[in-house]
Amino acid sequence: MLDDTDRRILRHLQAEPGLSNAELAERCGLAPASCWRRVEKTQAAGIILGQEAVIDWQRLGYSVEVSLRITLDKTQPRAFDEFIAAAREVPEVLEVQTFLGRVDTRLSVIARDMGHYQQIYRSRILTLPHIADIEALMHVARIKSDEVLPV
């Protein structure tokens, strides 16, 4: 599906997503129109999903990150759907993941400090529907955070 030129384009976009089409074309040895068509093709195929600004939330004053492993009350038929819909509405929840196994979901929660985290936990997390059990894991360090794919 992808040839070497497409992969080269993807490597450059992953390294520097803010490149203009002209800069990208030059780095890939293509004419700008040809480069743009290839980028559009990968977008249409769902390979490139979009571009985003990555913000360092710690520089904005959020110094606490907690991972919450949540087991849901699965006796309720819509427990997953209702829980996920409500968790998405909590601004401090950065990520929601679902699993098969003992733990059903994981929430990544940020807060300015421990007092702020306690407030979020009591007023927003504990009020989420269908929670049977919660295990909190305090984030200590991020060793690797990379979404660059080996293309």
Results as ranks from 00 to 15, higher is better:
Asp146Leu: 06
Asp3Val: 07
Phe80Leu: 13
Pro77Ala: 04
Leu100Ser: 15
Leu13Asn: 10
Met1Ala: 15
Tyr121Arg: 06
Val140Ile: 15
Asp56Gln: 11
Glu92Lys: 03
Arg7Gly: 08
Leu107Thr: 04
Asp113Cys: 00
Ile134Ser: 07
Val54Cys: 05
Phe99Gln: 08
Asp81Val: 14
Ile120Val: 13
Arg8Ile: 03
Asp6His: 09
Glu52Arg: 07
Gln76Cys: 01
Pro129Cys: 05
Arg88Asp: 12
Ile70Glu: 08
Glu95Thr: 12
Arg122Asp: 12
Asp113His: 00
Glu147Thr: 15
Ala22Lys: 04
Val93Arg: 13
Val93Asp: 14
Leu68Thr: 02
Thr105Phe: 06
Ile47Pro: 02
Ala31Ile: 01
Ala132Asn: 07
Trp57Cys: 02
Ser108Cys: 08
Leu72Asp: 09
Arg102Gly: 12
Asp81Ser: 11
Met1Arg: 10
Ala45His: 04
Asp146Gln: 07
Gln97Trp: 15
Gly61Gln: 03
Arg37Glu: 06
Thr71Trp: 12
Val66Arg: 10
Ala87His: 10
His12Lys: 14
Thr98Met: 10
Leu149Lys: 14
Glu23Trp: 00
Ala25Gly: 10
Val140Pro: 06
Asp113Thr: 01
Ala25Asp: 09
Glu147Tyr: 15
Glu23Ser: 09
Gln118Asp: 14
Arg142Leu: 11
Ala45Cys: 07
Glu135Met: 13
Gln118Trp: 01
Arg122Glu: 15
Cys28Gly: 00
Ser145Gln: 15
Ile125Asp: 13
Thr105Cys: 14
Ala22Cys: 01
Ile47Ala: 07
Pro17Trp: 03
Ile55Leu: 13
Glu52Gly: 12
Asp4Ile: 05
Arg88Leu: 12
Pro17Glu: 07
Ile125Lys: 09
Gly29Glu: 05
Ala44Trp: 03
Leu126Trp: 05
Asp146Cys: 07
Ser34Cys: 06
Glu23Arg: 03
Gly61Glu: 08
Ser145Thr: 10
Ser34Gly: 12
Ser63Thr: 02
Pro150Tyr: 11
Ile120Thr: 01
Asp113Asn: 02
Arg122Val: 10
Arg88His: 14
Ala87Phe: 03
Ala136Cys: 06
Leu94Cys: 12
Val64Met: 03
Trp36Lys: 10
Gly115Asn: 14
Pro32Gln: 08
Arg11Ala: 11
Ala79Gln: 09
Val93Glu: 12
Ala141Gln: 15
Val64Leu: 06
Ile110Tyr: 06
Gly29Tyr: 02
Tyr62Ser: 01
Arg37Asp: 08
Asp133Ser: 15
Leu128Phe: 11
Phe83Glu: 04
Thr105Glu: 08
